Simulated assay, not measured.
Amino acid sequence: MTDISQFDSLAQLYADWSEMPFRQHLEFPSVLGFVGQVDGQRILDLGCGSGVFSRQLAKRGAATVVGFDQSSGMLDFAVQQEAKEPLGIRYIPGTLPTELHGSFDLVLAVYVLPYARSYNELLSLCRSAADALRPGQRLLASPMSPAINTDPSYYSRYGFRITPSGPLTDSTPVDLNLRFDHYDAHVTAYYWTAATLEKALVEAGFTSITWHPYQVAETDDVDPAFIEPYLYCPHAAIIEATKTPVRCDG
């Protein structure tokens, strides 16, 4: 798997990045809109990072929220936020315990799949999500968009720059430069085509794969000149898939 330690010192940066306008006006409303009602649900935030989505899911009424991440720095930050404002979120490092397999109604995986360096690693992440879900339940993931704009300056207004290391093919390394306020940090992600993402999901046991567009809430007062370039060419996609239901033959 990709070098998880690259995230250990970036928890506060990622928490502050969640306040960026494109995330507030587009990403969060879109992702949480497709999540839908969470009352009474058991949700796994796979690759929870600083816990931004975990906390939102808990506040929206999920019965159980488990945040899982392999970055100790990210998890430490998330645990500190839970201590400051207890919401009943459980954070787990390392490997998801087997007793939690098959127990979740939803797995959310925002900015997780882009950190698989090889197809086997991508498949492993998809299988981890499938293992966690009950049959017939959903994965909602946000991989790097297969149609990203390769002009490094295109996304600069949104607080980051994207620079592929070469032509966009499966597993091409991409430099993500998070540059806003006083921050200027780099992490390495990996590009995957839509066909390969769907192949990994199907091989992991998912069906009914759907790609969702971003949406702006009608109540949002946001400058179209600011938001429309992202709507036209987002850096991340939203993909939904269902774990294959158990068949009851005869």
Rank of each mutant, 00 (worst) to 15 (best):
Q80M: 11
T150E: 12
V107P: 06
F104M: 09
S5E: 15
Q80C: 13
R23E: 04
V52Q: 09
C126D: 10
V79A: 15
D69A: 11
D16S: 11
R127L: 08
T98N: 00
P21G: 01
Q41L: 15
Q137P: 10
A195Y: 04
A147N: 00
P245A: 12
E85M: 04
S153W: 01
E82K: 05
F7I: 06
C248I: 06
A62H: 10
E228D: 14
S124V: 03
P86C: 08
G159C: 06
E27Q: 12
T188Q: 15
Y158G: 02
H186F: 13
Q24C: 06
H101Q: 07
A129K: 05
A15Q: 11
S30C: 01
E121T: 00
I162L: 15
N149K: 06
G136V: 04
T98M: 03
E27D: 15
A109Y: 03
Y111G: 07
L139D: 03
L44R: 11
R117I: 00
L197H: 14
C233H: 05
T242C: 07
M144V: 02
D131K: 06
L201C: 04
I4C: 02
Q80H: 14
F180N: 11
A241E: 08
P229A: 05
C126I: 10
W211K: 12
F226C: 03
L108K: 00
F68D: 01
R134M: 15
D221P: 07
D8K: 00
C126V: 10
L176R: 01
H101C: 03
V202S: 08
L13M: 15
A109W: 05
E121Y: 00
P86W: 11
A11Q: 04
V66K: 10
Q56G: 05
S142Q: 09
P135T: 04
L75P: 09
E99R: 03
G136P: 11
Y91R: 14
T98G: 01
A195K: 11
V216H: 03
Y158P: 01
Q70K: 12
F7C: 05
S118Y: 09
S54D: 10
A15C: 08
A225G: 13
E82G: 04
I162T: 13
E203Y: 10
P97R: 07
T188G: 13
K84A: 11
I239F: 01
Y155E: 07
F226A: 03
D170Q: 12
D45A: 11
T244Y: 00
G40F: 13
F22Y: 15
A129M: 09
K59T: 12
D221N: 14
I209R: 13
E85P: 03
S156C: 06
P97K: 05
G36T: 11
I92G: 04
